[in-house]
Design a protein around this nucleic acid. Structure first.
Length: 657
DNA sequence: GAGCACTGC
C-alpha cells in the first residue's frame, strides 16, 4: 500500500477536494486510485456525514476492490467496508465505504434522487464511458448545479481527457497521479496487413523465436482459434477480444500484438436496427492494449498497422456507449427522477447522444404509455422505471398483471434478460447435441419464441429446477439459474410497487387461456408497440411498422411456425432487429390484428416535438389555439389518412376471416 | 438456413 504512487499525493488530493465540489483524478493502471481514494477520504472524516460511494462499471471490480480495502483496513467485509451488486448486498448500517456497480447506484437514486445518503461519490474508471457512467456524470452535474450540497464528486480515470471533463464541470481541477506501469516499446508495422490472422500468427512466432521469455497477448475481433494450446513449460500465447482490455488480466504478459480492430454493437435509431460491426479502435483503446504488456516488467507492443493509421485514422477516444445504443430505458429513468425543468433533448451529457436517438427513445416511451403526448411521465411510466428491464418488457409486465397472466410474463421477461447465456457456445459438437435433444424441448406451439422460452422455463420448473435437465437439453446451468434469480427479483419488485392485487399465481383465467396464450401475447403486443411488423402479401418476409418501413426476414432460428398453407402470422412483434448478413427479426411472437390496429393508429399520430417535454417551443404558441387532438397529430395529410383508414378496413376484414 | 464483441439493473 505504501508503495502505491497515489499515497504521496494524499495531502494535495484532500486539500483540493475540500476546496472543490468536483475533482478529476487521472491515474494510470496501478496508481491505486480504486483502493486508496476511498480510504483517504475516510481518514479525513468524510464518512461522518455520509457514505463514501464508489461506483464501478463491473461487478467483479466492485467485489474484488471492496474485499481488498476491507483487508487493508483490517475489517470484516460487509461491515465498515461493503459492496452492493445485483442480487447481492453486502453492506450494513456500519458501512461507510461502499463499492457498487453504477447500475445499482442508478437504482438507488430512484428512491433518493438527491443521493443524500452519500457524502462522496467516486466515479471510477470513467474513461470506459459506459452508458451508466455517462448517465451518472450528467446526474451528478445536475445535482451540483441545482443544489448547494456538500456532496463531493471525484471522477477517476486512466486516460480520460481531463480537460474535457474539467470543462464539463465548470473548470474543476484535474490532478495527475503517476501509474506503476513499466515502459512499453511501441512497434508499428510498415503497412496494413492483407490478413490480420496471418499477420498476427507470424508476429507471434517471430516473438517466440527472437524474444526472451514472456507471454504473448493478441487482440483480435472474435474467437478465432489461431493455434492449438502449447505444451507445458512453453511460452503462452493468448488470443483475446477486448475482454482482455478491462475484465481480464493475464499475468506474465510481456508482448502484446494489436490488430487495431474491435467488434462493436451499434444501434441505428432511425431504423431500430442493431448491427455488429468490426471497427477501428480508438487511440485510448490502443494505449490500453499496449499497457497490458507493461504490468510485470518492461514490454513490447506490436501494432499490426502503420503509425500513420494510428495518428490519422484512429479516433482519440472510443465513441461512448450512450451514442451507440437505444436510449429508451435511460430516458425513462431520467424522466422518473422528476428533476425539475429537464428537457431531455437538452439534458447536459458529457457527450450528448444525437437528437435522433433521443427522439427515438421518446417515441418508444410514448407508444407504450410511459410518457404522455407532452412528454410527461405517466403513472405507468413511473412503475416501469422501477423494474430493471428494458421498457418493452416492463410495460408487458404491467399489462400482464391487468390480464391475469403476470406469472407467465415474469418468466418471459427473465428468460429474455438472459437469452444469450442460455445456450452454450457454438461449436459443431454442441450444435449437433442440441439438435438431437431439441426434440424434447417445447417449440412455442407455433406462437413464436417468447412462448417457447416460457414453455422451456416451465418444463424446468416441473423438474424442480433440476441441473441435469439443463445439461441434457443443452441449456447453460448458469444462464438458467440467472433467469430464476431475475424472475424472483422482478416478482419482488412487482409485489412492492404494483397497485391492486398481484397475479403471480396461476389464476383461473390463466388456465382457461393457456392454450393460445391469448392474454400473454396481448400484453406483449402492448409492450412491444414500437416493434411490430406485418407480413408481406405473397411471401413470408415482413415489413416493420414502428420505424421507417423496412423489409426484413424472420431469423432462421425462430420458433415461429407457418400455418398449413405455409404462411407465417400476418402480424408479429419482435424483440430485436439485427443486421448480420441481412436484416433479421429475432425472438418473435404472433399477435392478433385487433390488438395491433390501435397501436398502428397511434404510431401514425406521434408528434415527437411535443414529447421532448421541455419548455414550450416558440412555434408551439400557434398550435395552442387548436384543439388538443389536432395539435398532437401535427399537420396530418388528409389524403394519407384516408389511405390509412382504407387500409385498416381491409386489414380488419382480413383479420375476421 | 444462420453464426454473436463486452458489460449491467
Amino acid at each position: 500500500m505504501a508503495n502505491l504512487p497515489i499515497v504521496q499525493f494524499e495531502e494535495k488530493i484532500i486539500k483540493t477536494v475540500e476546496q472543490n465540489p468536483v475533482v478529476v483524478i487521472i491515474g494510470e493502471t496501478g496508481s491505486g486510485k480504486s483502493t486508496q481514494l476511498s480510504q483517504m477520504l475516510r481518514r479525513s472524516g468524510y464518512s461522518k456525514s455520509g457514505i463514501i460511494g464508489v461506483p464501478q462499471p463491473r461487478r467483479v471490480a466492485a467485489v474484488s476492490v471492496a474485499r481488498r480495502v476491507a483487508q487493508e483496513l483490517g475489517v470484516r467485509l460487509g461491515e465498515e467496508v461493503g459492496y452492493a451488486i445485483r442480487f447481492e448486498d453486502r453492506t450494513s448500517e456500519k458501512t461507510c465505504i461502499k463499492y457498487l456497480t453504477d447500475g445499482v447506484l442508478l437504482r438507488e437514486s430512484l428512491a433518493n434522487p438527491m443521493l443524500n445518503q452519500y457524502s462522496v461519490i467516486i466515479l471510477d474508471e470513467a474513461h470506459e464511458r459506459s452508458l451508466n457512467t455517462d448517465i451518472l456524470l450528467g446526474l451528478v452535474k445536475h445535482l451540483i448545479t441545482i443544489k448547494k450540497s456538500n456532496l463531493k464528486i471525484l471522477i477517476t480515470s486512466a486516460t480520460l481527457d481531463g480537460e474535457k471533463v474539467s470543462k464539463f464541470f465548470s473548470d474543476c481541477p484535474v490532478l495527475n497521479v503517476p501509474g506503476k506501469l513499466y515502459p512499453v516499446e511501441i512497434l508499428y508495422s510498415k503497412e496494413r496487413p492483407k490478413s490480420y490472422h496471418e499477420s498476427a500468427l507470424k508476429k507471434a512466432l517471430d516473438i517466440h523465436v527472437r524474444e526472451p521469455e514472456g507471454d504473448v497477448l493478441i487482440f483480435m475481433t472474435g474467437q478465432v482459434r489461431v493455434f492449438s494450446p502449447p505444451p507445458p513449460n512453453c511460452r503462452r500465447i493468448i488470443v483475446a477480444t477486448n475482454i482482455a482490455e478491462t475484465s481480464l488480466t493475464v499475468d506474465g504478459v510481456v508482448y502484446v500484438i494489436d490488430s487495431g480492430y474491435v467488434k462493436q454493437r451499434q444501434y441505428n435509431p432511425s431504423t431500430g436496427m442493431y448491427s455488429l460491426d468490426v471497427v477501428q479502435i480508438s487511440k485510448v483503446q490502443a494505449n490500453q492494449r499496449a499497457g497490458r504488456a507493461g504490468r510485470t516488467r518492461p514490454g513490447k507492443c506490436y501494432r499490426l498497422y502503420p503509425s500513420s493509421v494510428y495518428n490519422d485514422e484512429f479516433l482519440d477516444v472510443t465513441v461512448p456507449e450512450i451514442q451507440r445504443c437505444s436510449l429508451a430505458g435511460s430516458v425513462l429513468y431520467l424522466k422518473s427522477l422528476d428533476l425539475s425543468d429537464i428537457d431531455i433533448l437538452k439534458f447536459d451529457f458529457l457527450d450528448p447522444p444525437s437528437s435522433e436517438s433521443l427522439e427515438d427513445a421518446l417515441r418508444q416511451l410514448y407508444l407504450i404509455d410511459a410518457i404522455d403526448e407532452n412528454g410527461q411521465i405517466t403513472s405507468i411510466g413511473r412503475t416501469m422505471a422501477e423494474l430493471p428491464l428494458e421498457p418493452s418488457l416492463s410495460r408487458t409486465l404491467m399489462e400482464a398483471n391487468e390480464y391475469g397472466c403476470l406469472s407467465q410474463a415474469l418468466t418471459v421477461a427473465a428468460m429474455l434478460s438472459a437469452e444469450t447465456a442460455l445456450l452454450p457456445g457454438r461449436s459443431k459438437d454442441t450444435e449437433k447435441k442440441r439438435k438431437q435433444n431439441n426434440l424434447d424441448l417445447p417449440d412455442g406451439s407455433g406462437w413464436g419464441d417468447h412462448i417457447q422460452l416460457l414453455q422451456i422455463y416451465e418444463c424446468w420448473h416441473q423438474t424442480d429446477y433440476n441441473i441435469d435437465w439443463c445439461k441434457v437439453n443443452g441449456l447453460q446451468v448458469r444462464g438458467m439459474t440467472f433467469v430464476k434469480d431475475v424472475r424472483k427479483q422482478l416478482c419482488q419488485i412487482m409485489e412492492k410497487i404494483a397497485k391492486g392485487p398481484l397475479d403471480v399465481r396461476r389464476s383461473r383465467r390463466w388456465r382457461e387461456n393457456q392454450q393460445d396464450y391469448y392474454h400473454l401475447r396481448k400484453a406483449l403486443c402492448v409492450g412491444y408497440a414500437n416493434q411490430l411488423a406485418e407480413r408481406m402479401i405473397h411471401h413470408n418476409g415482413y415489413r416493420t411498422l414502428g420505424f421507417k418501413a423496412q423489409t426484413v426476414q424472420v431469423h432462421p432460428s425462430s420458433a415461429l411456425k407457418p400455418d398449413e398453407e405455409g404462411k407465417l402470422a400476418d402480424y408479429i412483434l419482435y424483440h430485436e432487429l439485427v443486421a448480420t448478413t441481412r436484416p433479421y427479426l429475432r425472438n418473435l411472437c404472433s399477435v392478433d390484428i385487433k390488438w395491433a390496429t390501435p397501436i398502428i393508429n397511434k404510431i401514425n399520430k406521434v408528434n415527437v416535438n411535443k414529447l421532448s417535454g421541455g419548455v414550450a417551443h416558440v412555434d408551439d404558441g400557434k398550435l395552442s389555439d387548436l384543439p388538443k387532438k389536432d395539435a398532437a397529430a401535427g399537420a396530418p395529410d388528409d389524403h394519407e389518412n384516408r389511405i390509412q383508414a382504407a387500409r385498416e378496413r381491409f386489414l380488419a376484414r382480413k383479420g375476421k376471416k
